Simulated scan of single mutants.
Amino acid sequence: MTALGAVFRPQLPPERLRSVVEAADSAGLEQLWLWEDCFLESGIATAATALAWSSRLKVGVGLLPVPLRNVALAAMETATLHRLFPDRVIIGVGHGVQDWMGQVGARAESPLRLLREYLFALRALLRGERVTVSGKYVQLDGVALDWPPTSPAPVLAGGVGPKTIKLTGEAADGTIIDSVTSPDGLRAAMELIAEGGGSPDHEIVAYLLTATGEGAQERLDAEFKGHGVAGDAHAVAAAVEALAEAGAHTVVLQPTASEPDPEAFVRFAAEQVRPLVG
């Protein structure tokens, strides 16, 4: 069965998060996803509070920009969340927007090499291994977590370019595909992931830009940069099914930045779209 989620976009103020989390949790939404976009809201801080304010909701962070975060710190934070909220945490990492990385003096000469080094180190740390590595970007000297996760803690990675997508198949447990990608684009990405060595159980999470209710098409058109859907639950469910047929295990409905009622949006996903999705 395809898992269904929704995004709490960081264009909303942090104090709005609790009401969206509680609406999602009470409606039975499976996943709520958070972003660490510069310079809006922290992915880890919002994830921790969202997990604490809910009882069954899975919370995903997609993505943590790796140039901003030392890999040992990312491992510590991820492991802590996994131990506090077992089986409810999904962490994704990625390059970060290069202009933003440049603004904070963290832009890497080779984002691809940084991500590869980071993924191998982060996954090893979360497996409880003692890691020594001397890469161009990641340096660790006998580092091991005192409190590693007690169960597997998959690490997903996201990206747009073909080299990055192929790398996610090589070095991550799953791939996050952004909302500009159509079902045909997802099929092409699946081929790249397989070329990189992605296994049959490699998790695929696909965002779907979604608008519903009054003015839905106008809101979608104002933000549309690729694949998206505007309409009622049946229209949205059909778009979700198309991505699932192309290979997505999880589809995350991404509201427009101008979504007027984010609490209603997550209830719409859980109560109206979910029953229509296989």
Rank of each mutant, 00 (worst) to 15 (best):
I44K: 01
S182E: 10
S54Q: 08
E170F: 01
R267A: 12
A108L: 08
A6N: 08
T78D: 02
L29Q: 07
A75Q: 07
W147I: 09
A206W: 03
T2A: 12
D141V: 08
A108V: 04
V229P: 02
T80P: 00
G142P: 00
E195C: 06
S54L: 08
E30A: 13
G94D: 09
E259V: 04
D178K: 04
D178M: 09
P149E: 09
Q98D: 12
P154M: 07
A79D: 09
T164N: 09
E195W: 07
E241G: 08
D25S: 07
A248R: 06
D173E: 05
R267T: 12
A216L: 08
A48Y: 06
G128E: 03
G278P: 14
I193Q: 05
P86Y: 05
G5Q: 04
S19M: 10
L122R: 03
E263T: 11
V133Y: 12
Y118L: 00
D261T: 07
L81G: 06
N70Q: 14
L192R: 12
L145C: 09
A27S: 14
D37W: 10
S55C: 09
R113D: 06
L122A: 03
P111G: 10
V180D: 13
T46I: 00
D37Q: 14
V89Y: 01
V160C: 07
W33R: 04
A72R: 13
K136S: 14
R107Q: 14
A230L: 06
G105H: 04
G161P: 00
R18P: 09
L17P: 08
S258F: 01
V59Q: 01
G92E: 02
V131N: 04
A216S: 12
G43R: 00
A72H: 10
L115E: 11
R88D: 02
M1Y: 09
W35V: 12
F268G: 09
T132D: 03
V104G: 03
W100P: 00
G278R: 15
G215I: 10
T181W: 02
A264W: 01
R123H: 08
K136E: 15
G43N: 02
V277I: 08
G228D: 03
S258E: 13
D141Y: 07
T150I: 11
S258L: 10
P260L: 05
E245H: 12
A239I: 08
E117Y: 07
Y207E: 10
H202L: 07
Q139I: 13
G247R: 10
D87C: 06
D221P: 04
E15L: 11
S54K: 06
L156W: 00
E245P: 00
Q254F: 14
A270R: 05
G247P: 04
A238D: 15
A194I: 01
D146E: 15
L220G: 08
L119C: 13
R88C: 05
A124E: 12
P154F: 00
R16G: 10
G169D: 08
E259H: 03
